[in-house]
Design a protein around this nucleic acid. Sequence first.
DNA 1: TTGTAGGCGTTATCAT
DNA 2: ATGATAACGCCTACAA
Lengths: 353, 353
Amino acid sequence: MTAHKIVRMAAPTLRDVAQLAGVHPATASRALNPATRPLVNADTARKVLRAAESIGYQPNPIARSLKTARTSTVGLVIPDLTNPLFPPIVRGIEDVLTPAGYSAWIVNTDNDLAREETQVESLRSRQVEGLIIATARREHPLLARLHRQGIKMVLVNRRVEGLDLPSVTADDDAGIGLAVAHLAGLGHRRIAHLAGPQTTSTGVTRARAFQHAIRDLGLAEDPALMVECGYWSETEGALALRNLLDSGADFTAVVAGNDLIALGCYDVFAERGMSCPDDMSVVGFNEMPFLDKMNPPLTTVSVPHYDIGSEAARLLLDTIDDPERPARSIMLAPSMVVRASTGPPAASQGATA
Amino acid sequence: MTAHKIVRMAAPTLRDVAQLAGVHPATASRALNPATRPLVNADTARKVLRAAESIGYQPNPIARSLKTARTSTVGLVIPDLTNPLFPPIVRGIEDVLTPAGYSAWIVNTDNDLAREETQVESLRSRQVEGLIIATARREHPLLARLHRQGIKMVLVNRRVEGLDLPSVTADDDAGIGLAVAHLAGLGHRRIAHLAGPQTTSTGVTRARAFQHAIRDLGLAEDPALMVECGYWSETEGALALRNLLDSGADFTAVVAGNDLIALGCYDVFAERGMSCPDDMSVVGFNEMPFLDKMNPPLTTVSVPHYDIGSEAARLLLDTIDDPERPARSIMLAPSMVVRASTGPPAASQGATA
DNA sequence: TTGTAGGCGTTATCAT
DNA sequence: ATGATAACGCCTACAA
């Protein structure tokens, strides 16, 4: 009775190639590596390449990493892949990393500090050469510590106060300006802001930008018209709007901190029989997918997420290539996407202005 | 003038720990590894652990992998992370892998065969211990080849004909049955199917299931009411519905191959001034996010994506632990989510039934 | 231009 | 129970 089991042949190594080509492993190594290939006789090189090809040789990146102390990997720290904000960023990152021979380890933190620590730790132990961090906390001892330890990193969608770290963000200031100007152009004078968590850098930036825009355009400056949401979520958005409405505040339009908060408003409209945009206009932020299919299609500020990702990856690769290079930060311009959730204020409301 | 540059100390190695603890590196290794710790004197072990702790020793996974030929990583092959279908699957996978000490490399293929080949190749060269494959082609020489080579893998959301591979899928048959029964219950007799690409296993399964369900319920069996979409996309869904409408076919409801195809129908309704569900009912498939916010909120078949991911990861870990274990396949039950895109057929239409 | 030798950090095997 | 030794696959001074 013969053995039927499939015999898994060990993957060919450099030695196998060298043996087949009749040269020393060192020579084979040089021939296979484009950077050192010029050191070896062209004929020899050809012979080695052919030998490698013929047995399907693939260099073992583990062994190479052990020797060179480089892994060609970077860590990608995001809050939650299920948030539609992040996949385009991830794609942007990967599309830059891949041609450069790098790959990304993705970890989710669920916005949990402890989880973030352990995940980053696991990335470090995997010897990533750098970190792209897209979690949103405004200040975080972890980042300061990593920075002190000389970990190369790039921030995405956030800045950290007091730390000179490269970052790629949308120009939130300009984006909010666009949103407010759009509403003002429609005739709105009393506009509310459902701000994102003020523990996040984007939450703070957008809230400040809102105040500036209101002032610049000479609209109603009323602190009562600014409410903070505890999370960037629909439920929090709904909650905030309910509170605002119940407080008896007088406003005809809402600039939401992001699209999810804006969609939360839709729930309140449904509850209270309000019509959007007739009774209330709403602008979101981010341009997440399928907004055009919503009821009503949501007017929003579009942020180039894919580009944010690709720029971040480029920044990180630059830092890896030249650690001395000073930290740059990049800000990308958003644009306005006008849909059906915004319109002129109702006559009865506009009258107050 | 003193040097200001931060001196990056080399990470402590096993030798450092051993030296500090006054033992041989081999002993330190045994003490540090829970599996071999019983081999060493309890006191010695404590000493080693303390030493490791004190200098912040982290084992180098690269070196370990080189020695053990195990990487504790698996490859995750998906078409496109941007498709909202996949992030929950990925989370399900990661939430099982992480506690087991494994991590996943994610690659996108964009449904491109060549890209899939190179991506899988890159995963293999990174020495992943197994593959979870969520790309949708029904037959693919690549998979057969990988299987022959003994690569451990689990299929997600698909089966491959003639190959005995473990897989985790939703019970598409049952799901489509649910959808058709729901429409039949509302009084629809002439139901169309906008099928997904018949090059994908889900596309085929759902189309067949549709035919069976129609027959079982004694509804109108009309080949003209089945149309194939070239992709699982909104535009293809819109295209298919337009063609169907233009052909003069008589139907009051649509079972779409997936949610995107269903949403494509919405575009056609808007174009032609049709009202959903009054003029036409639509059911989607998958329960992608934010369907409740659509106009109208989409009735759909909900598939437990997260669970699909976690089951797939479990299957793969099982295979890795025991390669001899026969391939199991798992089918998860879908459920109906009734929203506002389905209703009774209009009286004028229902009359034909 | 090519070969030699040593080592990256860890673990498996053998010997003590 | 611990130590010595070698090896995983690759790269790179250095020597020839």
